[in-house]
Write a protein that binds this DNA or RNA. Sequence first.
DNA 1: ATCGGCAATCGTGTATGCAAATCTTCCTTT
DNA 2: AAAGGAAGATTTGCATACACGATTGCCGAT
Lengths: 225, 225
Amino acid sequence: MNSDQGAAAGMLLSERIRLALADDITTGALAPGTQLDEQQLGDRFGASRTPVREALRQLAAEGLVEMRPRRGAVVAVLTTERVFEMFELSAEIEALCVRLAAWRMTPVERSALRRIHEESAYAVMRGDVDEYDRLNWRFHDAIYEGTHNAYIVEQAKALRERMAAFRRAQLRQGGRPERSRHEHGELVEAVMRGDGEQAAKLMRAHMFNASGALESFARLLPGAD
Amino acid sequence: MNSDQGAAAGMLLSERIRLALADDITTGALAPGTQLDEQQLGDRFGASRTPVREALRQLAAEGLVEMRPRRGAVVAVLTTERVFEMFELSAEIEALCVRLAAWRMTPVERSALRRIHEESAYAVMRGDVDEYDRLNWRFHDAIYEGTHNAYIVEQAKALRERMAAFRRAQLRQGGRPERSRHEHGELVEAVMRGDGEQAAKLMRAHMFNASGALESFARLLPGAD
DNA sequence: ATCGGCAATCGTGTATGCAAATCTTCCTTT
DNA sequence: AAAGGAAGATTTGCATACACGATTGCCGAT
């Protein structure tokens, strides 16, 4: 379980704790349902309870931990149902973004999107999953930005962040990068044509296809409730 | 400027402060850009800085206040551009909800939606804007719930809450309730037919028509930037 | 007179202390 | 032996105290 790796110096202590905890939760180092004792976390970070409390409040607002008044914080436990609900919204937001992007992207943005897609061909060929993962993120980022709506970009990124834990294993499963890239290709074409509705349809299908990892993840969750 | 009205007893102090501040901000009692001094707020609520800080952190996560490290918190100032961006997402989320609702609502839910719509006829006749406002909220709530996706319901309500300040004057402008109810009628029909795509189109138009108040609101905002 | 630098002041960030609420454990009672 | 309850322990919520960074006002220099 890491303690403070990554950017640190000059940053607020509560902020460092927040980032470290967020990382531990999304990577799964802190399992859902884990009790988060303030004093104990303070010891771990060499801090008092005060910055820990602030970090926990922040994480609660992000939905990563759940706070019961006077009963402490626990790592948010997500029912399978809720994960699917989050995933559905995520897919719809992505579809919404690409629909707007197909209508609004500048020629420069469109060719930048195509360039990212072309670059990913090498990663797939070499079987470099990490590299494809990065390019995949950049691809979706480019689509967010293409909406020309900074608020939507923020919300889309925040939602994706919250889903990070579930997407992590996503591309690891057999044949995913190849298929993912093929779907990206179709998306690029629709965006190039400015066909927003078609792009949205393709994106929903793309997200749904990518949801395979969700089902395997679902098995890790408490079966009941 | 209210201090503590509403639910109070038994609730956490920081929670009470959070709710009171959120109310003051959305009603406009605390103008955008106002510096929020921790000590001063503590005095106002008869509390120390600690619960005030926790409330401010929470509000920052909701987007109602902005926190600059070591420089304190201010009521979030929204540029006209940002308000329009928020509004666009809001409209798209509403459209998304009604599209899903049209496909998924049970017969009971559909008739409940129609009943709310019929009830609103009286409010319009009597010119009771407050009552129509309430029914309008219930109408949109019913659509959210119709998605059968609790996460989407939460997010939609949270977004609407953030927009509350801008919608407040919305229905006050001439002829709005009549027109709004007419548009609701078309929406109900599309939902009844299960025509999600058409319902989504109508909802976008409905939200866009309702955006008139935004333009008048825009004049209240700092013109530059 | 204006600009740059320095110091005092103010406010936030963090630590610590105290009280109330919750949880635990052990004892009593049926 | 099991259930209920009371006392102790633990933990959160809030208050107070301290330290550092930022802002502001003043003073001197140009």
